[in-house]
Nucleic acid binder design. Sequence first.
DNA 1: ACTAAACTGATAGACTCTATCAAAAGATAG
DNA 2: CTATCTTTTGATAGAGTCTATCAGTTTAGT
Lengths: 199, 199
Amino acid sequence: MSNHDRPALGLRERKKARTRSEIQRQALRLFREQGYEATTVGQIAAAAEVSESTFFRYFPTKEAVVLRDDLDEALVAAFEAQPAHLGPLQAMRAALRAVFDRLSEEERREARERAALVLSVPELRAAGIGELVETFQRVSELMARRAGRPAHDLAVRTLAGALLGAMLAVVMEIVDHPEADYVERLDAAMAYLEAGLPL
Amino acid sequence: MSNHDRPALGLRERKKARTRSEIQRQALRLFREQGYEATTVGQIAAAAEVSESTFFRYFPTKEAVVLRDDLDEALVAAFEAQPAHLGPLQAMRAALRAVFDRLSEEERREARERAALVLSVPELRAAGIGELVETFQRVSELMARRAGRPAHDLAVRTLAGALLGAMLAVVMEIVDHPEADYVERLDAAMAYLEAGLPL
DNA sequence: ACTAAACTGATAGACTCTATCAAAAGATAG
DNA sequence: CTATCTTTTGATAGAGTCTATCAGTTTAGT
């Protein structure tokens, strides 16, 4: 999404990237204007000037056109890059800060808009949370390794689950208060976890 | 599900209950034998000897025939019934114990089987977690009231999220270790939360 | 029994998604 | 620039979930 990397893509690759982003752009616009389920894949395809088949070549499902993002991937990478002396929670806190600090203002705005859309449409919410849970599985393993415990350890899983829940809470918070600062809220939630959940 | 309540249902009500449970029974059997997506609604309807239309009158979606249960409802009720002097976490712990202790051996077995099915089918997993999140919203409000804080308080939401994550962890644990004791695991996870998530 | 209400099955249709195949466009070599 | 090879595309057909409607049947209330 940023503009630092252009390793001389061929015409074919560039066209693909443009098509993908055009489909996504038109889809989000239509969703915003007409609502998610009132918009058909056919309409999206027509707006992006491709055939319906092509839509499904770029996005496996209608949901994916909203859900697709690279943040999970980036988060896992950032977590692994943290220095070994940090505990699982501290490492995750640092990783989250690293990932979100890297986003441009524009990217944050779009991420927020998508989050709001996902949370407001039941169908999308289910699928979106589902993706979050898959990330949770991976994070759970990474945390276990860092804590020197087996991957199936109940304590580790509970901790990973708590972390997941905290992130979900922040997402909901952000949707309610769009003007609030991302990173600060996320950090506050993590601090609350580290403090041992004082009620 | 239990057999204590029979307030003289009319013939119509009894027939409806029987049809609903027959559809569900046949559906779960077919899912077990052929897999979830290999089974069509038409097959389920035929096995239960009803029309396809009737299937959709009883269950709004194919997913619902697996996901439907009354545990969330019971949990919310049990939480509210806890004595006021308990903190949010303790109250939830007690509520969980109350709900699960009440289940018969048979009911626990079936709940476990369904959990395994839900977690193993991506489509169901997403929808299942989605339901869990809706419960989370309600629990979040109840916890806020009990803690004397506003419903949108970040700490409360984070706590509720952590709780949700812990429950998810236990569900996964149970699927991996079917022989393990439900209530004991759940209680252990809650204790871990109360202890402040020592890593 | 009689009427009103609830329930059912049949049919038609919209929409998401899969599979296949021939046409179009881009890449590569002479 | 042309010929060839590969990738991408659009068109068509089809399966499967789910909605809407409508006539026919079963149950409830009096």
